[in-house]
């Protein structure tokens, strides 16, 4: 299990990195390597050139703003997870991150790398979709912002052009007083999710959900926002029958076909259970607000 031969470049600037990508159709970006290198060791990926972006100074760091957390491309999972400022404005991040692989992988793997890989079972793409975040893509023709829901197109496929670099991801902070929760079902702790559900919701002063965001990973060829369920739950007190309705409306979102160890039915069952539990937990964490 050794990689096949490739060239290696370690540019110091974004522009340089882009021009290498633009000049070589089989060149790929190397970030943390925690997805790319296993694939290369299996010779499932055989890039011509690796463009190692770790030395690009502009691609490092986290910026926490009042509405948006900017996560630069070389930010490792573990940095995002442990960042105290992030935890203050978006405690969901750390909760989700517990489920991404294991600490030694999180020490190397990057948040943006995970988004670019776009595994539908992965947690970070779901988080971005759940929060309604976006990414910034920079290529030979400039910069553009791509909303999460447009970015993830299908299995391991994003809206990124191959000569574009995703320079940062933008994760919204949680609304004040919002409740949040995430959980997933896996075979082993740290594995990719068979199904995972995240929720952010706000309650009004009468205990009704004034705003509900709900998303899932593992169930389709991209992470999905469960919009119908969100609509059903909004305005309710999130009681058992409301949850039942939301679950019933979400079944169709499971489009992943039967696999040997995970049948379609099982995925739907797991998704339903997670929705009930996660929405309930988020509601418990939400503080009821004065506004109505």
């Amino acid at each position: 299990m050794k990689p096949s031969l490739f060239g290696y470049q370690a540019p110091a600037s974004i522009e340089e990195a882009i021009s290498i990508l633009a000049g070589d159709p089989d060149a790929v970006v190397l970030a943390g390597g925690q997805t790319l290198l296993p694939a290369m060791n299996f010779r499932a990926a055989n890039p011509s050139t690796l463009v190692d972006i770790q030395h690009v100074a502009d691609l490092r760091g986290i910026e926490v703003g009042t509405e948006i957390i900017i996560v630069k491309a070389m930010t490792r999972h573990r940095e995002f997870e442990l960042d105290a400022a992030v935890a203050r404005v978006n405690p969901l991040v750390a909760e989700v991150m517990q489920h991404v692989a294991h600490v030694p992988i999180r020490n190397r793997g990057t948040v943006v790398g995970s988004l670019c890989h776009a595994d539908p079972s992965a947690e970070m793409p779901m988080l971005l979709v759940l929060l309604g975040g976006s990414v910034i893509a920079q290529g030979p023709s400039g910069r553009r912002e791509i909303a999460a829901e447009d970015f993830f197109q299908s299995f391991l496929t994003t809206a990124r052009e191959r000569d574009e670099i995703i320079t940062e991801a933008r994760f919204p902070v949680l609304p004040k007083g919002a409740g949040w929760a995430f959980d997933e079902v896996t075979r082993r702790h740290g594995d990719y999710a068979i199904a995972g559900v995240g929720c952010v919701l706000s309650l009004d002063d009468r205990g009704r959900a004034s705003r509900v965001q709900l998303a899932a990973c593992g169930i389709a060829d991209t992470p999905v926002r469960l919009k119908e369920a969100e609509n059903i739950l909004t305005g309710t007190t999130l009681g058992a029958s409301d949850l039942d309705a939301a679950v019933a409306a979400s079944g169709a979102a499971v489009t992943q076909p039967d696999e040997i160890h995970v049948s379609h039915t099982y995925r739907r069952r797991a998704l339903g259970t997670l929705i009930r539990r996660i929405v309930t937990m988020a509601a418990q964490r939400a503080t009821q607000m004065e506004t109505a």
Binding site: G33, L37, P38, N41, D52, Q54, R78, N107, R108
Partner: peptide
């Protein structure tokens, strides 16, 4: 340990 943090040496290139 890579710069003080545990990491996989099989998922890191020597040049990296």
């Amino acid at each position: 340990l890579l710069n003080g943090r545990a990491g996989r040496s099989c998922l890191t290139l020597a040049v990296q």
